[in-house]
Each structure stands twice: as structure tokens, then as C-alpha cells.
Design a protein around this nucleic acid. Structure first.
Lengths: 213, 213
DNA sequence: GTCTATAAATAGATAGAC
DNA sequence: GTCTATCTATTTATAGAC
């Protein structure tokens, strides 16, 4: 859910309404992460926070609408990890180590994304219209950062197509290693990420420098 | 479903029974790939092949039992792509290009795995007991092949831990790039796989040689 | 803003005719 | 081996009291 609301000073029903809404989003996120969208029911989500299913549908028009809110909340939380605007060049790539640290400490949020990404692979899944452009945007961001790195001399020059390929491979690696980490707690997300970044950036003529160090 | 049954010469109900069972598995695989396990109903699966839900439960004890059969069938089909026993050393790694060719031509089978892998991330999902050991076994196989390659002088020497790491990264890359290919048909699984293999095997002191060439 | 009650549809699974 | 019919439980969503 969102951080402590800025309108904390407001009185009346509006304030409690916001809090309940956030509670619902949190409960729905946990449910979707555990059993996916189709496998979760409004009843279970409502019961988890001592509400009736009808109460949820006062805050959200439908189950689909609730899913949209959950995805927006997930985006907000995930974006908050990285600086805004994103770091330039190699610093952005190196910052993915921090993302993995966050995921390690918030496995529920990670499971939410992995489960929904798998489900949303189907063209008629309600999360598909969210996932398709998001994946393209994320890959684009990594590619642009790589091109910046080349322009700044942090890595060797490379074509736009090569940058996009490296970006897709980074996204693929992160998704895939996250699946393995969820299936097997012995898999160390941070260690694997550092190994990948170190190898990849070396190959591209650069160096991996851990963030904040 | 399985190939043409070996007992094709048998008469009577047994033969048709086998065929119906395979039809059910095929319909269930398609449904699970489209909407996941939780999102699919026995009614929909039955209707897709002109059966009643009750007929399915003559062939399978429960919906969970049907899922087990689908996963076993998926394993059989996937294993059939690669040689038995698996090729030794680098040939096994290079053979993953062929796997991607197969996946490109059978996107339904690919979607089935990706969707269920995501769902099965949850510890109490019925496919979790299938996925956890499978991922370990697959990684183990890639790692062993890499150690063979080192022993045969195909790549530079490496430790067992490094081999397992490379194996996990290969699995991660394959899973992740498959998700992207399902979300965006423009992603070329074979081309991305060749790029990954070429880069990785070069880094390990070897060379990527396309299979059957 | 949340509740109870309920609608209308669907779920997995069983019983028994044929 | 498949069907129809049915059971029990659950689904999303709505209506209306408080």
C-alpha cells in the first residue's frame, strides 16, 4: 500500500476511507501473490482484514478494478526503490543490486509480480494490458542507460539494437532468478545479481561498481 | 498428450479410453496455459472436447490428479526434444537452441509451463512439489554438462560452484526470455538464445557451435 | 462506510441410469 | 465409458438496512 498518507491531518470519513482502501490493497496483494488473481476471492481478501466482500466493492468497482489498484500500488512501491529520476548510465544498472536487496526483504511483493507476470502472459488476462507496455518500458530504460554509459565512456560503444538486447537479457535474468529464489530460498538474489552484473559489464568493456560504496 | 499409443492393436473400450484420456490432457493443458490452474474449470475443459465434467472424473480422481497428469505429459514431451541420454558437455548446452526452436513452434506448451511455474511459486500450490525438484534437477544437469565440458577441454576449468551458478543463470535467462516472448511476439527466442550461448561460452573459454551444423 | 441478505452463476465432485 | 441430475460450496456482484 502507499506510504503514510500526506493528508493525515484530514478529519472525517475521508481519512478512514483511505486507510481501509490501503488495507484492502495490501490484503489483495498478499492473496494474489499466494494464489494468483483467479485463485483469490473477494471473500478471502475481505476476511483477512475483518471486512465483508461487499465492503471491498464499495472501494473498488469490481475485482478487476481491485487488480488494477494492486498493480498501480506495486508500481509505486517498486519505483520508490530507485531514485527519481533514474540514475544515469552504469549507475542505473549497478542500482539493480539494491532492487534485489529490496526483493529479498519483501518476498511477498516479489511473488506478487512473478505470479501475475506468468498469468498475464495470456492475452485475455486482466493484467495483460498492464504487463505488455511495462516490460517494453523497463527494457527501454535499461537500454537507454546503456547507451548513456557508452556516450560517457563507461563502456565500449554499442549499437542501439545491441543495447536493447542486453536490456532484454538483463530483464530475463532478473525474472528467472527471482522464480528460482522463490522456489528455493537458498538462491541468493543479491549474490547472483552481482555475478551477472560483473560478468556482463566486463564483457561490455566496463566495470561493475557496487552502489553506495 | 502422448504419442500414438503402442497398444494401437488392442480392441474394445481400452483403446478408446486411452484416446479420450489424451484428449482430456490436451484440453486441460490448453486451459491451464490460458487461464492457469485456478482459473480453469473442469466444465470448460470438458466442453472443449464435447464431454461432461463427470466424464473427466472417470479418468482422473480429481482436478489435482488431472494437473499431475498434465505435468507428467509436459515432462514427457519436453524430454523428447532432447536426446536420451542427454548429450555430453557443450553439446547439451548448444542443444538448448533446438529447445527454443521447439518452444517457438509450440507456444501453448511454453505458456503452460510459464504460467504454472509462476503459480507454483506459492508453497501450497498443487504444482509446487513438482516444480521445486524439477528446477534443481534441471540446473544440476546443466552444471554437470559444464563440468564434463571442462574435463573434455571444451572450456576452461571451473569449480563445481561456478558450474552450478552458470547453470542457474542459464535457466533464469531461458525462463525470463520466454516470458518476454509470450508477452511480445517480436522477441525471437532462437536469436536471443544463440546470443546468450555465444557470449557465455566465449566467456567460459569455449565456443558456441550450433547443433546439427 | 459497513453490514446482512440475497441474487445469479459457477465450482468440484458424486449417484445412478444406460 | 458417458450421460443427466444433483449436492454442497463458493463465486462476483447488488440491494437495502443501519
Amino acid at each position: 500500500m502507499a506510504e503514510v498518507p500526506a493528508e493525515g491531518g484530514k478529519r472525517g470519513p475521508y481519512r478512514t476511507g483511505l486507510r481501509t482502501r490501503d488495507q484492502i490493497i495490501a490484503a489483495a496483494s498478499a492473496a494474489f501473490a499466494e494464489r494468483g488473481y483467479h485463485g483469490s476471492s473477494l471473500r478471502q481478501i475481505a476476511a483477512a482484514i475483518g471486512l465483508s466482500p461487499a465492503a471491498i466493492l464499495r472501494h473498488f468497482d469490481s475485482k478487476d478494478d481491485l487488480l488494477t489498484a494492486v498493480l498501480e500500488d506495486w508500481t509505486a512501491q517498486t519505483n520508490a526503490i530507485q531514485g527519481q529520476p533514474r540514475p544515469r548510465g552504469l549507475a542505473f544498472w549497478a542500482g539493480q543490486r539494491t532492487v534485489m536487496e529490496f526483493h529479498t526483504r519483501h518476498l511477498g511483493l516479489l511473488a506478487l509480480f512473478i505470479v501475475l507476470a506468468g498469468e498475464a502472459t495470456a492475452p485475455d488476462h486482466p493484467a495483460n494490458p498492464f504487463m505488455v507496455p511495462r516490460y517494453e518500458a523497463v527494457a527501454r530504460g535499461y537500454a537507454d542507460a546503456l547507451l548513456e554509459a557508452a556516450a560517457d565512456g563507461e563502456i565500449a560503444p554499442l549499437t542501439s539494437a545491441d543495447a536493447l538486447r542486453e536490456a532484454r537479457h538483463l530483464v530475463a535474468f532478473m525474472d528467472g532468478i527471482e522464480v528460482q529464489a522463490l522456489l528455493n530460498p537458498d538462491v541468493d538474489l543479491v549474490a547472483e545479481m552481482e555475478a551477472y552484473l560483473s560478468q556482463t559489464l566486463t564483457r561490455l568493456g566496463g566495470t561493475y561498481v557496487p552502489p553506495q560504496a
